[in-house]
Design a protein around this nucleic acid. Sequence first.
DNA 1: ACCGTATCTGAACACATGTTCAAATAGAAC
DNA 2: GTTCTATTTGAACATGTGTTCAGATACGGT
Lengths: 195, 195
Amino acid sequence: MARTQGSHSDITGPRIREAAIRLFARHGYAAVSMRQIAKDVGVQAGALYNYTPDKQSLLYRLMRDHMRELLAAYDALGQGGDAQDALRRFVGFHIRFHLERPDEVFIAYMELRNLTPDNFAEIEDLRRKYENELEGILHQGQQSGLFSIADTKIATLAVIAMLNGVMTWYRSGGRLSLDEVEQAYWDMVRRSVTA
Amino acid sequence: MARTQGSHSDITGPRIREAAIRLFARHGYAAVSMRQIAKDVGVQAGALYNYTPDKQSLLYRLMRDHMRELLAAYDALGQGGDAQDALRRFVGFHIRFHLERPDEVFIAYMELRNLTPDNFAEIEDLRRKYENELEGILHQGQQSGLFSIADTKIATLAVIAMLNGVMTWYRSGGRLSLDEVEQAYWDMVRRSVTA
DNA sequence: ACCGTATCTGAACACATGTTCAAATAGAAC
DNA sequence: GTTCTATTTGAACATGTGTTCAGATACGGT
């Protein structure tokens, strides 16, 4: 026995991605075996190697694609307005983008230590690019007198950490709507940097 | 060959703890084997089982003890002053306590998913207790008109997330002193909740 | 000096791991 | 209908996993 019905690269490829994302997010990269992923897809373990050279690359590509999507989506937002407008745009974007992909986000910042040094460096580079977008906003607001920030680097990381916290508890259909959550975080972020 | 020179429960026990903390923090619970821990201690894998019934309990006790220490240390801080004083005390305590134990902290919130359901529930209970301390402060400040917070539950988690961010970047001997870091975070936290 | 016990070793167990590959087959192209 | 190739299987490989345990040994008490 070998090739099964309905087998095709266009189908199996994405299904492997989806299964890996779900399983890595749920149990962690190290705790998930190639056989578990294969079983979830409905295929034997060996078949996975038509789509990834090894387990490490599977993780790396997941994270790399996620970070690229993040940067591309933020870029597509466009610019305009003053620093406060830009900050508000950033907060809203960050919350919504991340809540739409909880599994990818979880992986992207929980599995960094399971990347090889080379892969780690590349992902870190992408992450830095995103942080720089926020730091640029804060820096500009500080220059123009709109914000009052002791250290823009600290503030950047503090704001991102604060926003990331939303993923540890928010569940759609819960007590608060997405708009209410966004409003609450925006209030806190705005006040934490405003002069 | 068997029992080696200088072997004693009082020595090996703590060394196993320390090795497990370091290795779990560095590579993750699932990626660290009992043999690696044993090698780090300078002992055979079998010897570990004089100190822990199994690998899971090793992780659980690490996290449980850490959370208990956290709660005990915060309790020992004492009370007094208004909500703003209490909040300042909380911020300073949280930053300092967590920066003193980066490995334990890392484990305590990265390895939750590797706990059995029972163990997970117990750790979550302790974490909740700690969060309630902060929520109490915010709630009291809101009642007394000192703070202006839309939702104390969100604010609690946002503040803790913000403070936890410090551990992702702070290194002693870096650009900023501990006092400067504490001051910067306190400024942001205060402004984010103050009326 | 001897004994008893706490402590550790080393080997073993059964099973899981990532990865490779010849052989088998389903679907596309003609 | 035949051929060709992309795709999958199933078995195998070497190594690693958590855990157990009989036997060996060093230390504390007498």
